[in-house]
Amino acid sequence: MNMKDQVCIVTGGAGSLGLHSALAMLDQGARVLLVDRHAEALETARLQAAVHGDRVAVFAADVTDAAQTRGYVEEALRRWGRLDVLVCNAGINGAIKPIADYPDDVFDAVMAVNVKGTFLACKHALPRMADGGSIVIVSSVMGVTADPGVCAYAASKHALVGLMRVAAKEAAGRGIRVNVVAPGPIANAFQADIERRLGEVLGRDATRMLDEAIPLGRHARVEEIAQTVLFLASPQGSFSTGSVFMADGGMHV
């Protein structure tokens, strides 16, 4: 999966999946700009990737802001002169409440980060991307299924599938591929927070409940999902576009 000198942007780059996806691409020779709104977490991520020297850089930005989105795209171009890969990974999970009780402001926040943030990334990166590039959008098993209590998260992740399909058709003439990765539960802090709150609502062990719902019987390791991102970002995925790649241990079946 040679990605030597390809320039990649990863939003949500300080988080577990964002960082591991970046590390997977860096290991294949890519240059990666990690984007996240949390400056301290970004610095921690940069230190974890420091072995890759000047092939990794960081940029603090709010993905819901158009000017800041243009800023991180321009930063990648300023540093390395091109843009080949965009990984839209920034996301939040919101509340766990039935629709009738769901807070309006939380719904708006989830849609802003998960959907608008991805829209802005595609809007500002696509015109500057090299022909033959790749966009990988991180959705979720909740982007093709649903459960009670997660209306904002599920709606946002479904929306990403629609956005991906439009972008795939619009970008195909330039050989730019656009795909969705739809992970199931991952053994990381993001998922642990969801399961803690879900367990409080249900009055049972949510981690065990989810493992029982996954045919493979366990949560994913973050490295496993990062390898799916790597495949789609790299030349190995050269004939894949407009697709939803399930990485959920069979949970959607």
Rank of each mutant, 00 (worst) to 15 (best):
L77M: 10
H219K: 06
D205R: 03
R46L: 15
G94I: 03
Q6E: 03
P148S: 15
I194W: 14
S21R: 02
M1I: 01
S234N: 00
A67E: 01
E212H: 08
G132F: 07
F190N: 11
A121W: 05
L19Y: 03
A60D: 14
D65T: 05
A121C: 02
H52R: 11
A171C: 08
A22H: 07
K116M: 09
T44P: 05
L17N: 05
K4I: 01
V113G: 00
C151P: 09
M251Q: 15
A146I: 12
G203F: 05
A130P: 00
A60C: 15
V136I: 10
M164F: 07
G173H: 08
S139E: 08
V56N: 08
F231H: 02
L23A: 04
V63D: 01
G81M: 03
P98E: 01
K169P: 08
S134A: 15
V63S: 03
K169V: 13
K157H: 09
V106P: 04
V58I: 14
V115Q: 02
G162F: 11
E40S: 11
F190P: 07
L198G: 14
L17M: 03
G91R: 02
M111D: 09
K97S: 15
A49C: 09
M251L: 15
D65E: 09
A182V: 00
D205N: 13
R79L: 14
M3T: 03
G71S: 04
P98F: 02
R165V: 06
V201W: 00
Y153N: 12
G94N: 01
R46T: 13
Y72E: 05
N89T: 01
V180W: 00
A130D: 11
N93A: 14
H219D: 09
V110D: 07
V144W: 12
N93M: 12
E170C: 09
Q48R: 13
A50S: 13
R165D: 09
Y102Q: 06
H252Y: 15
N2A: 01
G249Y: 07
A100V: 10
H124K: 01
I186E: 08
R221L: 10
D65I: 00
K123N: 00
Q68N: 00
K4C: 02
A146V: 14
T228G: 13
A95F: 10
T145D: 15
I9M: 11
R55Y: 09
I176V: 12
H20P: 11
G173I: 04
Q227I: 06
G53P: 02
H124A: 00
D131Q: 12
A187Y: 06
V144L: 14
N114E: 04
D205M: 10
M1K: 01
R37W: 05
D65A: 10
D147V: 15
D105R: 06
A159T: 05
R196I: 12
T11V: 04
L42H: 03
D108C: 13
V51L: 13
A45G: 06
I225D: 07
N114Q: 04
A226H: 04
K123F: 03
F190M: 11
D105I: 05
G18W: 04
L86A: 01
V7Y: 08
A76P: 00
Y102H: 07
L33G: 12
L120P: 02
D193N: 15
V10P: 02
H20K: 13
